[in-house]
Amino acid sequence: MASTIVTFELGGREVEVLVRPMTTLQSVLRNQLGQTATKDGCRQGGCGSCTVLVDGEPMASCLLPIEDVAGRRVTTLESLTPAEGLHPVQQAFVDEYAFQCGYCTPGMVMLSKALLDHDPAPNDEAIGQALAGNLCRCTGYRPIVDAIRHASGAMSGHDTEPVR
């Protein structure tokens, strides 16, 4: 099958890529655009390390054919990170030591941002539900849950102390 050109918005800029059919968004980001913050833990939709936002919704980019994002708005960790300093979610992950190896972190940060956009003050149950598809082998999740609660406080203006 012939390659086609797909156009989508990435971090506020329009990008055009020439792809073979059924190429995933993950592969385009990592291999064609060099955006390797989006990770590659399984390519089976099972780990969430490749989570990006499409029109603000968290999605596993390894399961997303690039054709499906044509004309849509993609946000990766590269586009979330401010030019200087950190996004409040990133800062909360730093403050709560919410990672060890860091391989799950990009996906966790993207997921947390989407969660807080929809629900600025999620309870533990809502956080747990949201995280259900994103695996972490190192931390035992507790510090990640704490980071999300902490970020929620910071973003709503009631700056909370780090939980620890």
């Binding site: 990592r30 390797t36 913050a37 990770k39 960790l77 990133q90 030591y97 990672f99 860091g102 990009p106």
Partner: peptide, 18 residues
């Protein structure tokens, strides 16, 4: 603070296959 913290939360940490 962990010395690799900012690299990890920004995704700038380079893993082998990156």
């Amino acid at each position: 603070e962990r010395s690799d913290a900012v690299g990890h939360v920004t995704g700038r940490t380079r893993f082998a296959a990156d």
